[in-house]
Design a binder for these strands. Structure first.
Lengths: 249, 249
DNA sequence: TATAGTTGTCTATATCAATAGACAAATTTA
DNA sequence: TAAATTTGTCTATTGATATAGACAACTATA
């Protein structure tokens, strides 16, 4: 990389405190592998000079990350990296939570948080090709890998056709397995729209994030091989824990 | 949507000032179309109550957005939305800047900012299937639509094979047209990895963003239909101006 | 032409964020 | 063991952030 010197500088009077900007930088460095797992961070004085701030400001950043479980500080020894690189979550025509992360994690599963029946909103109705107001089942789920939450999703299914999918989901912990109970043995991703924003209060709680964190948001429609809409979903990924790999679509 | 009441609340002591969080919310609302273009924002007192902060705090947020050219405030009348919804940028096997945004913009083009020859870094070499250190040409470009910067990209090409592609790029303003001069009349996107982070100082300058803004980052490899690597690229999109639509090819 | 509704400006106060310096406490190294 | 290195704690000061209240200036409308 060239000309990245000044990019290491920090924005003042930006509404984002310096300690949080520095915490972000450190997270970023860990996520991209610049700070290896278990390795010691440069000493506080060095970081302070690198970012052009006071040592105490660096300490604020570090203490936030210690709180967050990303770093461990040991008096007299140094500060060490606990967390690992980002998971790489594949998105393609055959997107499946568990299989996608299989090779990168020792354990992953989906937890059903809640379910409800509601009239389809405009966008849900559009996505599923239903009339607005048609009853749909809404499943709120969280995806976890190696004990850490990585994604939070809301999925909508036509209520009439998929009555009981909430129970299936609770029992199997898998969308794929749940759909199989309704005779769907294959489904494809028809469309995905992707955006990013700051995590809101709900995201922070659901994904166990700190304020100021970023979430990647996908809005997708899954269909049968024939093109019949099955599921409309909105998923939020923690941008600091996962990256999305667009596999041959 | 259900249960979004509390999500409207704001995080204190988060390292992100309240006025900036509120500015983000308003931007978000505009981007998703919740606040229509040219429409009046709710009065300051109402916003203050909605977000649970003082009116002066809301005013700070609004004044930042006025500065940014997103809002226009008129004493006695109200505050009005100037900017429009996010552009939807398609990503698929045939991803082309200009064609992708054609229907949504009246004008778009790519500006060549700089070019240089350098030895391939680890990741560039891997992406292009070259030995590390092989000479590559690096093109720095900015994509603009309707006069606003939407993306900032670095692209790497094998220097030996694509000598002069910088000139071609400067003249044509198009990757597709430049590659055509080297006998490449079609190319496909082989892989794309997507992540999100806060904009750094370089992003802020290049994309004309405000501190605290978010960028979507894609790292991609383009290949010939035969699978021969042509281009390795890293692109940063302003998350408040574009969303990425993953198109099935 | 009042009146209500809205943005703009001013003063004051309290808390958070950042800098500065000094030294304690723990660990590693010479 | 002594010295060097590193994190932890304390005090003090400055500027940015947030709250509070009052009122001016401007616009639309009854």
């Amino acid at each position: 990389m060239i000309g990245r010197q000044e990019a290491d500088s920090i924005e003042r009077r930006s509404g984002v405190s310096l300690w949080r900007q520095i915490a972000d930088r450190i997270l970023q460095a860990i996520a991209t592998g610049d700070f290896a797992e278990n390795a010691a961070l440069p000493p506080e004085v060095v970081l302070a000079e690198r970012y052009g701030v006071n040592r105490h400001t660096v300490r604020s950043a570090i203490s936030a990350l210690v709180q967050e479980g990303v770093l461990r500080a040991e008096q007299g020894r140094g500060t060490f990296v606990l967390s690992r690189k980002r998971l790489s979550y594949p998105i393609g025509t055959r997107t499946r939570f568990s299989t996608g992360l299989q090779s990168q994690t020792s354990e992953r599963h989906i937890v059903l948080l809640s379910s409800s029946v509601e009239p389809a909103s405009q966008r849900v109705a559009e996505g599923l090709g239903l009339a607005r107001g048609t009853e749909v089942i809404r499943l709120e789920t969280r995806g976890e890998a190696d004990g850490r939450p990585v994604s939070r999703a809301a999925g909508w299914f036509e209520a009439r056709r998929f009555a009981g999918i909430d129970r299936a989901m609770a029992e199997t912990g898998s969308i794929t397995a749940s759909l199989a109970r309704f005779g769907i043995d294959d489904y494809l991703r028809q469309s995905t729209v992707l955006s990013a924003r700051h995590a809101d209060a709900a995201d922070l709680a659901d994904l166990d994030l700190q304020p100021g964190a970023i979430v990647l948001v996908t809005v997708a429609v899954n269909v049968t091989p024939d093109g019949e809409p099955l599921q409309f979903s909105e998923t939020r990924f923690s941008a600091e824990r996962v990256e999305l790999r667009l596999s041959a679509l």
